[in-house]
Design a protein around this nucleic acid. Structure first.
Lengths: 337, 337
DNA sequence: GTGAAAGCGCTAACAA
DNA sequence: TTGTTAGCGCTTTCAC
């Protein structure tokens, strides 16, 4: 079927060579009006669509950009994806997405699968990778942008923010508001991952005021992220068993939202009975009642900026490796704490 | 760079032919242990990743599935995408996504761009397409699944639900609750699109009870979808200018949520002062206060089922065209109406 | 168990 | 303005 509507059949139908047919369909100008029309008609009649595997192979470019995110769930990263995809589409690029599930091994698999498509550039959320991931990325010969963090040893360009600083700033802000007995909900904090950085930053803030959190619960990601309502209930259960606190810091936004909803349903008043702060900022964070106090992350900006850099490298042939941009963050003090 | 780590250089480094190297890397068994090890080592050292443009071209398959959704915004379709992507990944397939922005011309463009990658199958949200879109899809020679609606003339398989019936059921449910003075917020209702079907279904319910809506506002999509908070404020403005109603039906979920939030901020009590019902069901619909009464759509199921059908066609070579499945819907009566 | 050769559908370089 | 030729990086016969 594919062969029945290949360039060859279009050419045959229009009575020209495949070269000429290709030229017309690519929009080159040095073809006679008449020929062009004939080719276009033939193509339309056959429903012809170019085979970009073939053309990409020929010119060794795919007009594809890859992006690796920890998860699709919950719109945390989708705003960044959206912004990037829109910018790319304007330049005739498409996006392929991989999911790392917050695991470097999964990330490795995703990167391999994506690189197989020979993208012209790649954006990765995160700066921790397996050695093989780094190797593959280096050998790929394409521009790389790491994001959502500041890298110690960037693979290429780096558009991010300091997770440590952001969590510390939130800690300071909460202390300023008068809270002093903190509980923390964090995803698995390992190596130098973002959960750990956030935890460390928060603790640094407490230490500066001679404080220490009353307890810190490490919750598997599927628990906080898989299902908001269920995750929230889980956290409320935790609250009852642990030492009394006056403020709960959730190192990711989804657990913050889930917690607020679950607390409300359990009849606990936020922020009267307990303050809740989150990290990250999706649209719902400001829509729920009470609106979530959180660290506002510039996801959209990071997505956009990353793709802009890639496009600059690809289209203007300007090396972007080594570029580092800190997009910062902002403490959004709303009603929950 | 790509050539420096092509199959040829792996083969050279391992001292074998590209044929043999390829065999090893594809996991074929009829290779000596020793050779296999040498090849794998060479590949690892070079960070080799297969070029699927080349392999795909050779075997005319891409292990790629395309999906076209109206929008990425707001997780309406992302649950469906998520479910589909997960199922596909398990079978070694990747997904490429296109966005139609609720416009058939944009859809045509997206379909052309996606088909150029020679996906092995395609899922499209919606059943209305331009003639060229239909033609391209027909000539592509790949399985097609239309979804989120029931098609009059399916292009291939069809996994959906009746938007008319769903809206009618919601209308009936609201009337049963005692509402009788309805306002409607709808996206552009043209041809046989889903907005129009929902509107028609809702009106049918009213007619059955000798009622008629007090007013119906057609709001451009960017207004209700671009920004929840702003869209909501817009709707609240409308409410003040139009005839008094006791219940507002929003034919899409995002406007329902935006409306509830905006009304709450404006000091109007839902459902005491006015009932609000939506259409569609994302996670936040049940988390906001009051929880949104809405038509629950099986997005996740449609996404999953669509990809299962495609996989069946692709991997088991079983023709799926003509298969129609109505996954139905459900009225979720919550607190907002 | 291994390799040589042909070719997937397209485009770039060159020739006419 | 148009066509011929070669080859992108792989996989697939087919031969050894």
């Amino acid at each position: 079927m594919a062969s029945r509507s290949g360039l060859k059949s279009v050419a045959r139908r229009a009575g020209v060579s495949t070269t000429t047919a290709g030229r017309v369909l690519r929009g080159e100008r040095n073809v006679s009006e008449k020929t062009a029309t004939a080719v276009k008609e033939a193509a339309a009649e056959l429903g012809y669509v170019v085979n970009s595997m073939a053309s990409g192979l020929k010119n060794s470019k795919s007009r594809l950009v890859a992006i690796v995110v920890p998860t699709f769930h919950g719109s945390v990263f989708s705003e960044a994806i959206e912004a990037a995809a829109a910018a790319l589409r304007e330049h005739g690029f498409q996006m392929i997405i991989g999911e790392s599930s917050y695991e470097v091994d999964q990330e490795e698999e995703a990167v391999a699968a994506l690189l197989a498509r020979r993208p012209d550039g790649i954006v990765i959320v995160g700066t921790r990778h397996t050695p093989r991931t780094r190797k593959m990325l280096e050998s790929a010969g394409i521009p790389v942008v790491e994001t959502w963090d500041i890298a110690d040893h960037p693979l290429g360009a780096n558009i991010g923010f300091s997770n440590f600083d952001a969590a510390e700033a939130m800690g300071l802000a909460l202390i300023k508001k008068g809270y002093s007995r903190f509980g923390v909900i964090s995803g698995p904090a390992v190596d130098g991952n973002r959960a750990l950085q956030r935890l460390s930053g928060f603790r640094s803030a407490l230490r500066k005021h001679g404080l220490q959190e009353k307890w810190c619960e490490i919750v598997p990601y599927h628990h906080v992220l898989g299902n908001l309502a269920e995750g929230g209930r889980h956290i409320v259960g935790l609250l009852q068993k642990r030492a009394r606190i006056d403020c709960l810091f959730c190192t990711n936004e989804l657990s913050g939202i889930g917690t607020i909803v679950a607390l409300r349903r359990a009849g606990t008043k936020v922020p009267e009975n307990i303050g809740v702060a989150g990290f990250g900022d999706v649209e719902i964070a400001s829509l729920i009642e009470p609106a979530l106090t959180t660290v506002r992350i510039r996801g959209r900006e990071m997505g956009l900026r990353s793709s802009q850099l890639l496009l600059k490298h690809i289209e203007e042939d300007e090396d972007i490796s080594g570029i580092v941009e800190d997009v910062g963050f902002e403490i959004a003090e709303r009603d929950s704490a």
